[in-house]
Simulated assay, not measured.
Amino acid sequence: MTNKVPTNIITGFLGVGKTTTILNLLKNKPENEKWAVLVNEFGEIGIDGAMMSDQGALIKEVPGGCMCCTAGVPMSVGINALLRQKPDRLIIEPTGLGHPKQVIATLTSDQYTPYVDLKATIGLVDPRNLSNEKYTGNQNFNDQLQTADVIIGNKVDECTAHDIDAFNDWVTDQTPAKVFHKLVTRGQLPIEVLDIERVHGGASSHIESHHHHHAEMEPEFQLDPNQPFARKENKGQGYFSCGWLFGAEYRFNFDELFSLISDLKAERVKAVVNTDQGCFAFNSANGVVSVNQLSLEGFESRLEVIDSQLMPWDQLESILLKLAGITR
């Protein structure tokens, strides 16, 4: 490789709209460019990559929250695999519970500086969360915003005037000042923001160690030929996740699945599912469910639930199996 690949980290807490933002960027990228996306999720199943694969980008997933670990082996494997395909741009989406400073430290290391041109780190925030102690008291939430060069206040259409004032006050008080900030709806990030140079989003010389459960270190997760479904759990940093993967031959009733996801009180629900009406991506955050149809075929359905409380996974699994027509 003779040219460095322009690279951006897009960070933000759970449910802030990172995936939606990246999907919008992919839809608006120059037609002659090939973009790559490295997706890291706290859950073990991997939902975001399935949503993005419909946009024709090069996708690599690191499920299970592994990318934020100090060793960084799964992240390096994923980055190397994407760089070998010579993309015109690389976007990295760490988990909403991740440590952006470690990702920056890796990308600015001697290993990657000959190949990666790290541009501004973009931090997404829901302005409503800036007045909520649940978020402002969370170290990762604060680290993500502190590390970002660019701050995007997303979901402004769901905010009150008080929320907008809180966002503007917060941005004004930042030292050092943020390079750029903007309020947007539905992740409509101006594509020009990706070319802003990195200024103060540097890696700290000290990165706090952290521990969480790991499943398999391999980023790919598939079903065995005779296995109708599989379940994976993860926990760490005060959050629990449980995900299910279902064989491509199973179809869910769209209406029943939508009702189930709408009724779940979890903080985060994501799914890409084959239904009787086609393949759909479901996204639930703050009690709001969005649905988008995908053109995927022969795809293994997957659903992931994340919450700060341990939920009755066995009960939920029984409901999902019934919806899929799977008998134990």
Rank of each mutant, 00 (worst) to 15 (best):
P74G: 04
P74W: 01
P74T: 01
P74H: 01
M75W: 07
M75V: 09
V77K: 09
G78I: 05
G78W: 07
I79M: 12
N80E: 14
A81S: 15
A81H: 12
A81I: 01
A81W: 04
A81K: 13
L82M: 13
L82P: 03
L82Y: 06
L82F: 07
L82K: 06
L83H: 08
L83P: 08
L83G: 10
L83F: 09
R84Y: 06
R84H: 10
Q85S: 13
Q85I: 01
K86W: 05
K86S: 15
P87I: 04
P87V: 03
D88G: 13
D88S: 14
R89H: 15
R89C: 09
L90P: 09
L90C: 12
L90Y: 11
L90M: 13
L90Q: 12
L90F: 11
I91W: 01
I91D: 02
I91T: 04
I91C: 02
I91P: 00
I91M: 15
I91Q: 02
I92A: 11
I92Q: 11
I92K: 11
E93A: 11
E93D: 09
T95Q: 02
G96I: 05
G96N: 04
L97D: 00
L97C: 02
L97R: 00
L97Y: 01
H99N: 09
H99F: 12
H99G: 01
P100K: 07
P100C: 07
K101I: 11
K101Y: 13
Q102M: 11
V103T: 13
V103Y: 02
I104N: 05
I104G: 04
I104K: 10
I104Y: 08
A105L: 08
A105P: 00
L107E: 06
L107I: 06
L107S: 06
L107G: 06
L107A: 06
T108L: 14
T108S: 12
T108R: 12
T108A: 03
S109N: 08
S109D: 06
D110L: 10
D110R: 10
Q111H: 10
Q111W: 04
Q111D: 10
Q111T: 13
Y112T: 02
Y112N: 03
Y112I: 00
T113A: 01
T113E: 06
P114K: 05
P114T: 03
Y115G: 01
Y115I: 01
D117A: 14
L118V: 06
L118T: 06
L118C: 05
